[in-house]
Write a protein that binds this DNA or RNA. Structure first.
Length: 480
RNA sequence: CGGGGCGUAGCGCAGCCCGGUAGCGCACCUGCCUUGGGCGCAGGGGGUCGCGUGUUCGAAUCACGCCGCCCCGACCA
């Protein structure tokens, strides 16, 4: 594709984000389908890495994958009052199929709790069938008013775990366990620090007793909900009659959970690490960790250089940029924009000296090293970059998290923040968990992101709105 | 859905106000030459000007309608 300049973050953060996605060849707007995007090979490869990392962890915690229908009978949605109310505005409905009007319309799944409820009721009879631990990798569709690639599109890819348990305690353990799986992948794979916490009542999932989330901070200080895990209580169990016979022989409703992360993670990844030169991918999610750019001047140099390049590539599993007619300079720019962690140059001079040149994407540092140390140095550089990216992001989170002890302070901090200007903050304040209080924050377009599990900033205090004593501070921020 | 911007070659744009049959840069193709951070020169291919209707002898250009994209808000993973 044609490669244009990237708008600097400081000038226009939203445009910068778009430029990075486009220039990194991650995705593009579907254009012919409103609100949808095409995830291109580079973007999909990152998704595959995330899928693999997550799926491994799901399996390790006892879950199995299934696939459920895309179409859900409309009546299903209505069985859980709060659920239908929450999703009704964003549903797409199929009313005609096979040339005939359907007796009962289907909705295209916005999520699968209802259809899971139906099948759980078929599959579960006894406590021996519990816990039931399933997950599905799927697409879902929500008619969004405003879309941004990866962050919010009408159709997106995600994973939704659904589990049923015999007790609330066990279900809650599951909810928290999966929240920590998400936190682990976010921090240790994506190098994206997150705050694990409980959603406020106003922000919880429609139909859940309680929702948990991991919240990340983007480079402009805005929050991104990067994953959610819900305690569904017995709400869907009751709506879909999911009962089991206990050891004691009593019929009881199951306790369910659901949890999900989506392709939105890729948006978070981009807005956490990338810079004005383009995409920056932490080594652990980079589909291509290293690329070798061969350099030769004369035709007789070409053979030996290519040979050395191929051999080195094999030793570290790197890709050789064999394209002819492209100058090395053009190739460097190309791979830089693709976020490749390490680019290795090898030319006649290196060949003569037995060296290679190693360039690290995030710091831009170049190092000349002996060829026989490449494997070690390459891996070491990847590790260092992974560690440094996380440290840098964590520092940014710390630097932009502040405390406030009154509504006025919160306002002063958040009032003038927009996505364009950047400079958003996470404000830690005491606030009672009451939807009426969340509503007060709307005035400056902020929301309660979550109530952290780890007590980041002191203990109990007085609610900045009502003066009531509350156990801890909550995270207030503007969000995507 | 409200406000703003935009839609002309694969990409970025000019032309539109003042109607006369489409141009520039990059990319692409051919040849030569080059290659350690976006090589150069020469030649060449490619567009029913987002869609529709209307006004006109004639519409990229004017009018009306529609569609899509981006930004800002309300809604949301």
């Amino acid at each position: 594709m044609a490669e244009s300049p990237i708008t600097p973050r400081a000038k226009d953060f939203a445009t910068w984000y778009q430029d990075v996605v486009l220039q990194g060849d991650m995705a593009e707007p579907a254009e012919i389908v409103k609100g949808c995007m095409v995830i291109k090979p580079n973007g999909y490869a990152v998704w595959e890495v995330l899928q693999r990392e997550l799926d491994q962890r799901f399996k390790a915690t006892g879950h199995q994958n299934v696939y459920l229908p895309l179409l859900i009978p409309e009546s299903f949605l209505k069985k859980e009052a709060e659920h239908v109310e929450g999703f009704a505005p964003e549903l797409a409905v199929v009313t005609i199929a096979g040339g005939k009007k359907l007796e009962e319309p289907y909705v295209i799944r916005p999520t699968s709790e209802t259809i899971v409820g139906h099948f759980f009721s078929k599959w579960i009879q006894s406590y021996r069938d519990l816990p039931m631990l399933i997950n599905q990798w799927a697409n879902v569709l929500r008619w969004e008013l405003r879309t941004r690639m990866f962050l919010r599109t009408t159709e997106f890819l995600w994973q939704e775990g659904h589990t049923a348990h015999s007790s609330h305690e066990e279900a809650l353990e599951e909810v928290v366990r999966m929240l920590h799986v998400y936190g682990d992948v976010a921090e240790n794979v994506m190098a994206m620090p997150v705050i694990r916490g409980v959603k406020s009542r106003a922000e919880k999932f429609a139909g859940a007793l309680q929702s948990y989330s991991i919240e990340a901070m983007m480079q402009n200080g805005l929050a991104l909900q990067a994953g959610t895990s819900h305690d569904l209580g017995q709400n869907f169990g009751k709506a879909f009659d999911v009962q089991f016979q206990s050891k004691e022989g009593k019929l009881e409703y199951v306790w369910q959970t659901s949890w999900g992360v989506s392709t939105r993670l890729i948006g978070g990844l981009i807005m956490t690490h990338s810079d004005d030169k383009g995409l920056v991918l932490p080594p652990k999610v980079a589909p291509r960790k290293g690329v070798i750019v061969p350099i030769y001047r004369k035709e007789e140099e070409r053979g030996p250089v290519m040979e050395a390049a191929e051999k080195l590539a094999l030793s570290i599993g790197a890709h050789v940029d064999r394209r002819d007619g492209q100058t090395p300079g053009a190739k460097f720019f190309h791979w830089e924009r693709q976020g490749v962690p390490v680019v290795i140059e090898i030319g006649p001079r290196d060949l003569a000296a037995g060296n290679v040149v190693l360039k690290r994407r995030d710091t831009g540092t170049k190092e000349v090293i002996p060829q026989d140390t490449l494997v070690a140095k390459f891996n070491e550089t990847l590790d260092a970059m992974q560690t440094d990216l996380f440290a840098k992001a964590r520092q940014r989170l710390a630097d932009n998290t502040v405390t406030a002890n009154s509504l006025e302070e919160v306002r002063a901090i958040l009032d003038d923040v927009t996505a364009e200007k950047g400079g958003g903050k996470f404000v830690m304040a005491h606030l009672k968990d009451d939807p009426a209080n969340d509503a007060m924050l709307k005035e400056f377009r902020a929301t309660v992101r979550n109530i952290p599990l780890e007590d980041h900033y002191d203990g109990p205090g007085k609610c900045i709105l009502t003066g009531e004593k509350v156990p801890q501070r909550v995270v207030i921020a503007k969000a995507y």
